[in-house]
Computed example of a mutant assay.
Amino acid sequence: MTDVTSRCGFVAIVGRPNVGKSTLLNHLLGQKISITSRKPQTTRHRITGVYTEGNTQLVFVDTPGLHKEQHKALNRLMNATVLDVLKDVDVVLFVVERLVFNDEDQMVLDALSGIKVPVLLLINKIDQIDRREKLLPHMERLSRLYNFAEIIPLAVLNGHNLDTVLSCVKNYLPEGGFLYPEDQITDRSSRFLAAELIREKITRQLGDELPYEVTVEIEKFEQQGAVLHIHGLILVDKAGQKQIIIGRDGERLKSIGTAARLDMERAFEHKVMLNLWVKVKSGWADDERALQSLS
């Protein structure tokens, strides 16, 4: 669609780790394209999700959570990704949660200080606030920190106010033709999504048992008849991490594979044969050059 009355623009989703940015993106799109877990910093990459309705196209960019710890190359790369995204967007969604506004939230706000596009503050998880009468004074305090275009309380998981977010964002988009076909929902490849789904299951099932030194490479992604054959290589930093992922008699790796395969079959709408291996590759999380190839 190229009608001059159409609107299209890039919308960055930013915030500290674990406030619900990826969950927000998935719910706005009505489809899972960004992995989630309760563990902070699950998102490492810039994920683009495309929402098209009528004469409007919103190109959402989910980002890793900005955080203070930058000792490893992985953390530095994640923070650099966020700051790079902010240079070229039309609207920013700044996500915080409940009645919290801490040092990491302030770090995100500081990163927004030089941009000249509308910033919408989204206060997520309001359904978890015990005393709702505290919300309005909290919103008033936050409104004095920055000239937010809008402040919207929402509860992503139950869908509260998601329509309000979409309608507000549309008001701030520039006029212009669509950047993506109307039926496209992400710019990421199927191989990338497969790797992310595997990593999500590892993060969800193992929680605090593993640090962040885990990544996934797809070595084979091949359609044979009605079946997708996918081979995934799980890279860890230490031999002990390999044993944790494999588990006793391979049960943990089997559980991870089963959960990932079911999500892949929903995402790709094909039967999937998934094979997983685990390999130790020491120091990968602090190798900037290697990390660039994984992003």
Rank of each mutant, 00 (worst) to 15 (best):
L228C: 00
H229F: 12
H229T: 05
H229G: 03
I230S: 04
H231R: 12
H231C: 08
H231V: 07
G232N: 03
G232K: 03
G232V: 06
L233K: 14
L233I: 07
I234C: 06
I234P: 04
I234K: 06
L235C: 05
L235K: 10
L235R: 05
V236A: 09
V236C: 08
D237H: 07
D237R: 06
D237F: 05
D237P: 07
K238A: 09
K238V: 04
K238E: 09
A239E: 14
A239I: 04
G240L: 08
Q241S: 13
Q241V: 13
Q241Y: 13
K242Y: 13
K242F: 15
Q243P: 08
Q243Y: 11
Q243I: 10
I244L: 07
I244A: 06
I245G: 09
I245R: 07
I245W: 14
I246T: 11
G247D: 10
G247N: 10
R248D: 12
R248C: 09
R248K: 14
D249R: 11
D249Q: 11
D249Y: 09
D249I: 05
G250W: 10
G250Y: 11
E251I: 10
E251S: 13
R252T: 15
R252W: 09
L253I: 15
L253N: 15
K254W: 12
K254V: 10
S255Q: 15
I256R: 00
I256C: 04
I256N: 00
G257T: 13
G257A: 13
G257M: 13
T258P: 04
T258K: 13
T258Y: 15
A259N: 13
A259E: 15
A259F: 14
A259Q: 15
A260H: 15
A260I: 12
A260W: 09
R261E: 02
R261P: 05
L262N: 10
L262C: 08
D263T: 07
D263M: 05
D263Y: 02
D263R: 04
M264L: 07
M264I: 02
E265Q: 11
E265K: 02
E265I: 06
E265G: 08
R266D: 08
R266Y: 02
A267I: 01
A267D: 01
A267M: 06
F268R: 01
F268W: 01
F268M: 01
E269H: 06
E269R: 05
H270Y: 06
H270P: 01
K271L: 03
K271R: 10
V272E: 01
V272L: 00
V272R: 00
V272I: 01
M273S: 04
M273E: 08
L274R: 01
L274P: 02
L274T: 02
L274G: 01
